[in-house]
């Protein structure tokens, strides 16, 4: 990892077990899709964003570890709340289990709701609609000014084919640590604005090992 200094931003990923939290972060950071073991405790990844260091905390989904989340939520600039689009129960968990955690400690934290495993579910078989997803995402961010956010705080992704994965992270990073167009091109980042539903799946280009 370069320049061992305090990360400028902390992003945490939460959600039920086996929704694909580790797959999401590894697709973004290593641009790979492999089967991951259950995460025990938490794992940490570091990502360069222009001149900044971003720490991404991947947490365990097992319900018994919910108590640890307070620790990870502390000082988090953004939280990704992930659910499995092919398993509506995991969407319910965002309401039931994770929303209460976030309300207490992290008012200024940006919350992004992310549906995973989009490739597994044909559009006509979906249980959770796009509107429901967006509605939850907006409710979670009540009290936070998200007018600067260049995207909806809701994404539907596939870590398997890479759809919309880098958009999730870049949307968060751009909101929390804004880079100018010049800076973005200097660091080799895409300069176009993020548009979830018109763009072809884009793969993260930066290769950086998990640390």
């Amino acid at each position: 990892m370069s320049g061992k200094r305090k990360p400028d931003l902390k992003v945490i990923i939460m959600g039920d077990y086996a929704v694909g939290k580790t797959s999401l972060v590894c697709r973004y950071i290593e641009d790979k899709f492999i089967k991951h073991e259950p995460t025990i405790g938490a794992a940490f990844f570091l990502k360069q964003w222009g001149p900044y260091n971003v720490a991404v905390w991947d947490t365990a989904g097992d319900e018994r570890y919910t108590g640890l989340s307070h620790f990870y939520c502390r000082n988090a600039g953004a939280a990704i709340l992930a659910y499995d689009m092919s398993n509506p129960q995991t969407f319910e968990s965002l309401w039931a289990r994770f929303m209460p955690l976030l309300n207490s400690s992290t008012e200024k934290c940006l919350k992004i709701v992310v549906g995973t495993k989009m490739d597994l579910i044909p559009p006509e078989e979906r249980d959770i609609t796009l509107e429901e997803g967006r509605k939850l995402a907006h409710e979670l961010n009540e009290g936070l000014d998200i007018s600067k956010l260049a995207c909806e705080p809701y994404f539907e992704t596939s870590s398997k084919d890479g759809s919309h994965v880098s958009e999730v992270f870049e949307c968060i990073f751009q909101y929390c640590l804004p880079l100018s167009g010049d800076q973005r091109s200097k660091f080799g980042l895409s300069t176009s604005t993020v548009d979830l539903y018109e763009k072809e799946p884009k793969r993260a280009t930066a290769k950086k090992g998990c640390c």
Binding site: M1, P7, F44, L46, A55, W57
Partner: peptide
């Protein structure tokens, strides 16, 4: 190591 949780944790 930097005296910082995430580096030592890693």
């Amino acid at each position: 190591c930097e005296c910082e949780m995430c580096f030592i944790h890693s």
